[in-house]
Lab assay of single mutants.
Amino acid sequence: IMNCCEQCGEYLPSKGAGNNVLVIDGQQKRFCCQSCVSEYKQVG
C-alpha cells in the first residue's frame, strides 16, 4: 500500500509520517501535514 496523504495525495516516506494520522472507523488515514488533517476533518 502506498503511503499518500489522504487530503492532497502527496507521497509520504514510510516512517516519517506517523505524526499526522487519523483513525476513522478503524481505518488509518495518513496525512503529510497538520493542515491537511484539519482540511480533511472539515470536508469529511
Rank of each mutant, 00 (worst) to 15 (best):
S38V: 09
A17R: 01
K41S: 13
Q27V: 08
C5P: 00
G9V: 01
V21T: 13
I1D: 15
Q42N: 15
F31G: 06
Q34F: 11
F31N: 03
K29Q: 04
C33W: 01
G16L: 06
V23N: 08
Y40L: 07
Q27H: 09
V23A: 08
R30G: 13
P13M: 01
Q7G: 08
K41F: 04
K41T: 15
Y40W: 12
G9K: 01
F31E: 09
C4K: 14
V43W: 04
I1Y: 02
V21E: 14
C36F: 01
C4S: 15
S14G: 09
N3V: 03
S14Y: 00
S38D: 10
N19D: 00
G44Q: 02
P13Q: 10
C33N: 07
C4A: 07
E10I: 01
G44R: 11
Q34W: 06
L12V: 10
I24G: 10
S14L: 09
Y40P: 15
Y40I: 05
N20I: 06
L22S: 07
G26W: 03
I1T: 07
G18L: 02
V23Y: 09
N3F: 11
P13N: 01
V37M: 15
Q28E: 13
C8P: 00
I24Y: 09
Q7E: 05
C32D: 03
Y11I: 08
L12R: 01
G26R: 05
N19H: 07
E39M: 14
N3R: 01
Q7R: 12
V43T: 11
I1G: 07
Q7K: 08
C36I: 14
C36E: 03
Y40R: 11
S38H: 07
I24F: 13
G16C: 09
Q42V: 14
E10L: 00
V37R: 09
V43R: 11
L12Y: 02
D25Y: 00
G16H: 05
L12T: 04
Q7P: 01
V21C: 04
G26P: 04
Y11N: 15
F31L: 05
G18A: 12
N19C: 10
L12W: 02
Y11H: 15
F31Y: 08
C33K: 08
K29V: 10
E39G: 14
G44C: 07
Y11P: 14
D25Q: 03
K29M: 12
E39K: 15
Q27F: 07
V21G: 08
Q28C: 02
E6R: 03
F31V: 03
K29N: 02
P13E: 07
E39Q: 08
R30E: 15
P13R: 01
N3A: 09
E6K: 05
R30M: 13
I24S: 09
A17S: 12
G26D: 15
V21L: 07
C4Y: 02
N20A: 11
D25T: 10
C33D: 13
Q34S: 12
N20W: 06
S35E: 12
G9C: 07
G16D: 13
S35R: 13
C8R: 01
V23K: 11
G26Q: 10
E6N: 05
A17T: 04
I24M: 08
C32E: 03
V21F: 00
Q34D: 12
G26T: 04
G9W: 02
C5G: 00
Y11A: 15
C4W: 05
F31D: 07
Q27A: 11
N20L: 09
Q28R: 02
S14Q: 08
V37K: 09
G26E: 10
M2V: 04
G9R: 02
C8E: 04
E39A: 14
V43A: 12
N20Q: 11
K29A: 05
E6T: 06
C36L: 02
L22G: 08
V37L: 11
M2N: 12
I1R: 05
A17C: 09
R30H: 02
G44M: 13
S35I: 13
N19I: 08
G18V: 05
S14P: 15
V23G: 09
E6V: 05
E10R: 09
G18M: 06
L22R: 08
C4G: 09
F31Q: 08
S14F: 01
G26L: 04
G9Q: 10
C36Q: 06
I24P: 08
V43E: 10
C33F: 01
Q34R: 05
V43H: 03
Y11Q: 15
Q42S: 11
K41A: 09
M2S: 13
C33V: 04
E10P: 03
K15T: 14
F31P: 06
C8I: 00
V23H: 10
Q28Y: 04
Q34A: 13
L12P: 08
V37T: 13
P13S: 06
C8W: 00
V43D: 08
K15M: 15
Q34P: 11
M2I: 08
N19F: 11
C8F: 00
K29H: 13
Q28D: 15
C8T: 03
Y11T: 15
Q7N: 02
E6A: 06
G26K: 05
V37A: 10
S14K: 04
S35M: 10
K15A: 14
E39R: 13
I24N: 07
L12Q: 04
R30P: 14
Q42L: 09
Y11F: 08
E39W: 02
G44L: 05
G26M: 03
S35Q: 10
S35Y: 10
C32P: 02
C8H: 05
N3M: 06
S38R: 10
E6H: 05
Q28I: 11
V21Q: 07
V21M: 09
G9P: 01
V37Q: 11
Q7Y: 06
C36P: 07
K41Y: 02
S38K: 11
I24A: 12
D25F: 07
G44V: 08
F31C: 04
A17H: 03
